[in-house]
Design a protein around this nucleic acid. Structure first.
Lengths: 147, 147
DNA sequence: AATGCTGCTGCGAAGATTTGCAGGAGGCGA
DNA sequence: TCGCCTCCTGCAAATCTTCGCAGCAGCATT
């Protein structure tokens, strides 16, 4: 995989060690087309390399670390299962989660950059609004009565 | 508690049954000054009424239901423990979660209403942006280098 | 290439949340 | 007020995620 040096650099640049486990986990997520659960990522690692024997704990810890490093994003949706995705630095998008049917769709929202500025100004807080899970109801389900 | 009839009405109005458990759980959360974990809510219920014998499952299920009903909000923060709070219909606020020290602060953000409109227009999705958990770094911890 | 510091991993257990099932109770209609 | 239909609850097990600890392995330095 040609992007491994890139991952290696990104990890080391930020003062963390590049271990075999991290390389494989991040590479697997990097090449996934969409968000993946911890278990799915582990499956992918094993598919890529049947010799790989990585524990699920390490997958969780790697994902936590790489999210701190802004390499990946974690989404704790309503489903109860966290999913993770690789961060494309050039693209931000947000996840709309329908409470009716559970479907998710992605959307790019320029107005959230305004919110980042507002937060910095009002609270002195540097917000990282790149991957939000936004609840609501999709067009098919229609707005609900409550609220 | 004078607000119990109000809770009762809110639950029944939305086509759900008002059970003793729901009344006690929602009343406990309603009178809490800030967000509470499921376990904390159960403790409060027991403090209010030592005879109350409610299971933790019921607390979780009640909170899920009341969140669907927009009576409460659930926040799945980075801590790994979900917290819940009563929805004041007149106030919306969002939670800023510092990745450095773990502190959370609340902020009112008018710009997110713009985002709601943008989402409706672009995706036909009715977003419910009332209680978002927004990650970032607080003023004390300062912006980090990565990203 | 060898050494040492310290972060990282695997394992197992603990903690948090969800789920299946059988029985109990809320609220509508008679 | 009585009965019935469902929804709701409690329990226990399953599932998802985190944590503590002892040993291994990056990588900076020699």
């Amino acid at each position: 995989m040609s992007c491994e040096p890139e991952i290696a650099q990104a990890v080391r640049e930020r003062g963390r060690r590049l271990t075999i486990q991290r390389a494989k986990i991040l590479s697997a997520l990097r090449h996934a087309s969409d968000h993946q659960s911890a278990e799915q990522i582990l499956e992918r690692v094993r598919d890529n390399d049947p010799h790989a024997d990585i524990s699920l704990s390490t997958v969780y810890r790697t994902l936590e670390t790489s999210t701190d490093l802004h390499l990946t994003s974690e989404l704790r949706g309503a489903s109860g299962i966290s999913v993770y995705e690789w961060n494309d630095p050039d693209t931000t998008h947000h996840h709309l989660e329908c409470r009716g049917c559970g479907a998710t769709e992605e959307v790019d929202l320029s107005s959230l950059q305004i919110a980042e500025a507002e937060i910095r100004e009002r609270a002195g807080f540097t917000a990282d609004i790149r991957h939000l899970a936004i609840p609501g109801r999709c067009a098919d389900c229609g707005p609900d009565a409550a609220g």
